[in-house]
Computed example of a mutant assay.
Amino acid sequence: MFQAFFNGLAGMLSFSRNLDNISDNIANMNTPGFKGKDTFYRSLTSENGALGAQISGNGYRFGDGDIRQTGNAGDLAISGEGFFVLLNDGEVQYTRAGQFQFNDEGILIDSNSGGQVAAVNAKGELVPIDISSYRVLAPTPTTTIDFAGNLSTDMTSHDVAGITVFNGLGESLDLTFKFTNNSAVTAGSWLVDIEDADGNVIHSGEIRFDVDGTPLTDFNTLSFDITDLNGGTDTISVNFGVNGSFADSTSVSGGASSTIQGTVVDGHAISSLTKVSFSSDGTINLEYANGETLDGPNIALATFADQSNLEQVSGSVFRALEGSSRTIGQPGEKGLGTLVAESIELSNVDLSREFADMIIIQRGYQASSRILNVANQLLDQLYENTRSR
Rank of each mutant, 00 (worst) to 15 (best):
M1H: 13
F2Q: 13
G8D: 04
A10Y: 04
S16M: 00
N25Y: 07
I26V: 15
I26F: 05
G33H: 05
F34N: 01
S43F: 00
L44D: 00
S46V: 11
L51T: 14
G59H: 08
G65Y: 02
D66H: 10
R68M: 12
T70W: 10
G74M: 03
G80C: 06
L87F: 06
Y94A: 04
Q99E: 15
Q101E: 14
N103I: 12
A118E: 08
V120F: 02
S133N: 13
T140K: 14
T143K: 07
M155K: 11
S157Q: 12
S172F: 04
K178R: 15
F179M: 07
T180N: 12
V185D: 15
T186R: 11
A187Y: 12
G188V: 12
D198V: 00
D198W: 03
I202E: 01
D225A: 09
N243Y: 02
S253T: 12
S253K: 13
Q261R: 10
V265T: 13
K275I: 00
I284M: 10
Y288S: 03
P297G: 00
A302E: 07
S308V: 07
Q312F: 00
F318Q: 07
I328Q: 03
P331V: 09
Q362K: 15
R363L: 02
L372P: 03
L378W: 08
D380M: 09
L382H: 13
S388M: 15
S388A: 15
R389M: 10
